[in-house]
Design a protein around this nucleic acid. Structure first.
Lengths: 198, 198
DNA sequence: TGAATGACAGATATTGAAATCTGTTATCAA
DNA sequence: TTGATAACAGATTTCAATATCTGTCATTCA
């Protein structure tokens, strides 16, 4: 089964993800990971200086799966308003999907978010950068009137906080979620809109 | 000390608040409350059917102290945009102040919010109603262009979620809080703004 | 020589018994 | 008759002993 496979950080991350999915964050141990890799637990520490940093690396890798497809939308072409709307909807749907599809990894993300972990902050900053790309295009297209691109990008991300931050995941089951989200998007897009040339 | 004072629900709520502040939510018991009232713990159950409902009643009373001053602003007069801004700022400042001034009661509020407690939902609904009052005035004044008053009120409350929801209290210490909040308010107010008559 | 192991110490989690809490009610006293 | 108590049962928490985990490092092996 476990043949002479070279132990790599990537391999450790894969297996750690599996262990987290199986046991949950609270019960998963470095010893579990080592056992699954058929190595001593000391070997894991050659690649990750602590259990906490292993946990962060796994979360970072997992969150990158959320932000990578969004980057494609952000860097796309076409009218900026439609692109921003698509980006925002995609982000929130992706997070909503993760709750159902990958509950234990999502719980890890929630735990890290509660700890104000740098990985979650970096993820948020990456998302804001993507929004800023779209805003910048929108200004060039004359579709958006935005003076502070980065500040507005962050404001938008804050504004939809309730729809993508893991602390609010339970609320994503509310029957009126879509209606409320639509109303918020409409308000934000209107706030970004450049005056119509008449 | 404890003379023949009639045991009333109001009195129980006051003392429960004191017990919560002293011991914190996790350690405070009905027996503690009864002891502080110099009655048997069974007596508390004559007025509140369970520990949970006592906890909720205390939280409701405490949250009413947040929403009551806001109602005064909402029902005030003057230009709706300025009033809405003042209302939003007052809400967020009040919550920020509670974290420092009343940490144990705030922690109780956080715990209830995490449980999707009806008290917290009612609080949120009350806040949205107050925003709707201001929006309605703004529409009458020709300052706001809003088609769905209630929906927009909820959208606004969602938009500032990161600045008033207890789950985000740790983030209220961020150095850039004020700048980010300002940017968000500007965006929201612009989104509400009626077209200028030219 | 670089990677892995296994032993180790201190930290943390688990466990089962004991203590305490929550909610209830028969009884008592005013 | 109403409000309070104290006793009770089942549920939950606490506690101290034990087990396990985290992180480290001397030793071994390929």
């Amino acid at each position: 089964m476990n043949e002479a496979v070279v132990l790599t950080p990537e391999r450790i991350l894969e297996v750690t993800e599996d262990v987290l999915r199986r046991f949950g964050l609270a019960k998963a141990t470095v010893v579990d990971v080592a056992r699954a890799l058929d190595v001593s637990h000391g070997s894991v520490y050659r690649h990750f200086p602590s259990k906490a940093s292993l946990r962060e690396a796994v979360a970072r890798r997992w969150l990158d799966r959320v932000s990578a497809p969004l980057a494609k939308i952000a860097e796309g072409s076409g009218p900026a308003p439609a692109r921003l709307e698509r980006w925002l909807r995609t982000l929130c749907l992706a997070k909503q999907k993760k709750v159902c599809d990958d509950p234990e990894m999502f719980a890890t993300y929630l735990a890290l978010a509660r700890e104000a972990c740098v990985v979650v902050k970096a993820h948020r900053e990456k998302l804001a950068d993507q929004i800023a790309t779209i805003l910048s295009d929108g200004v060039k297209q004359g579709a958006f009137q935005v003076t502070d691109i980065k500040g507005s990008a962050r404001a938008i991300l804050d504004a939809i906080n309730r729809y993508h931050h893991p602390a609010h995941a339970e609320e994503w089951k509310d029957a009126d979620l879509a209606v409320r989200f639509d109303a918020l998007l409409a308000l934000l897009l209107k706030g970004l809109e450049a005056p119509r040339k008449r």
